[in-house]
């Protein structure tokens, strides 16, 4: 009589199949837990505590103190204008990168990527030199006799946007480009063969097909714009104060950590809400697909 003996090999195999990925992935997940999620949790916790008891006071003061409420609105406003601006300027460039002359295209690509490599501080700082009272722009306008007194070009909404759009453009262009590459351009050719003008073929074929890429790029640039600190701090006036500056101010100058945490939670919540809304409408995977340039 033979007793069926379980073959030990498959059991060991399946244990390996579970153990190996856990060992490979475990350290990364622990790291992210300790240096990302746990601190975030701590911040959320702090934001609800007033004198050792649960309270929504910090949130109430965020919404009722005029300068905080104003900063929330300003952040939203600046981010939207910046995203729309970089979309309008970036779309033609991304389109050129797809359809333009091959040799020129490679050069354009490199010239778009180079500023992408550089520090936000470095890129914001040059506008101080160009737009200053004795800067290049003012001297030029005086030389050609258009003005006699230097204009105040810095420390306003315009200078903040010029700085921010310059910073966000490469990301916008590369994300749009990644999506446009996946468009089957024979469809555009087909429209033209059937009598559509190039203009018409673009608007009724290429443009609608590029919309998923537009949404992905819009989302990415908008979310990153929400957290801007360096550019508004350097090129803006108090009127252009964004939420990141408020958090920095409240934390490091007023030392009101719970209030700063509440503002942080609010910014985090808005970011997550935008991502979730996007994920509902499209697929988030597309976003990372779009980032692979």
């Amino acid at each position: 009589m033979t007793v069926p003996v379980a073959d030990p090999a498959p059991a060991r195999m399946s244990l390996n199949r579970a153990l190996v990925p856990a060992l490979l992935l475990g350290p990364t997940l622990l790291w992210i837990f300790f240096f990302f999620l746990w601190p975030l949790g701590l911040m959320v916790w702090q934001s609800f505590i007033v004198k050792d008891a649960f309270s929504l006071d910090h949130y109430a003061s965020l919404f009722t103190t005029p300068i905080y409420a104003r900063a929330l609105w300003t952040t939203f406003e600046i981010s939207i204008i910046c995203t729309v601006g970089s979309l309008i300027l970036g779309y033609p460039v991304a389109y050129y990168l797809v359809v333009g002359d091959a040799r020129i295209r490679a050069v354009v690509m490199i010239l778009v990527i180079i500023p992408y490599w550089l520090d936000y501080i470095v890129r914001s700082f040059s506008w101080l030199i160009l737009f200053g009272r004795r800067g290049l722009v003012n001297r030029f306008l005086i030389d050609i006799g258009l003005i006699t007194e230097p204009l105040q070009l810095l420390y306003n909404l315009g200078s903040v946007l010029v700085g921010m759009i310059q910073i966000m453009l490469p990301l916008m262009i590369l994300t749009l480009f990644g999506a446009m590459l996946r468009i089957n351009r024979q469809l555009v050719a087909a429209a033209e063969i059937h009598g559509a003008s190039p203009w018409r073929a673009f608007w009724s074929v290429f443009f609608p097909l590029s919309l998923p890429g537009v949404y992905a790029a819009f989302l990415l640039v908008f979310i990153i714009s929400l957290g801007f600190y360096i550019t508004p701090a350097l090129l803006g006036s108090p009127k252009e104060t964004m939420i990141s500056q408020i958090i920095m101010l409240v934390a490091t100058e007023l030392f009101d950590w719970p209030l700063a945490s509440a503002a942080g939670v609010l910014l985090l919540a808005v970011t997550i809400a935008v991502v979730i809304a996007y994920n509902r409408a499209f697929s988030i995977e597309r976003l990372w697909g779009g980032k692979e340039a």
Binding site: P21, L25, T28, L29, I32, F35, F36, W38, P39, L40, L42, M43, Q46, L220, I223, I224, L226, G227, Y229, S244, I247, M248, A251, W257, A260, S261, G264, L267, L268, T271, V275, I284, E285, W288
Partner: peptide
């Protein structure tokens, strides 16, 4: 991996988290 897209999202989440939040929360920690 079970929950593979969740794990991937977790790893990538830092890319779109505003840096001021990372700074503040790490300081508290």
């Amino acid at each position: 991996i079970p929950g593979r897209s969740f794990v991937t999202a977790l790893i990538l989440a830092s890319l779109i988290t505003p840096t001021i939040i990372k700074g503040l929360s790490l300081y508290l920690f």
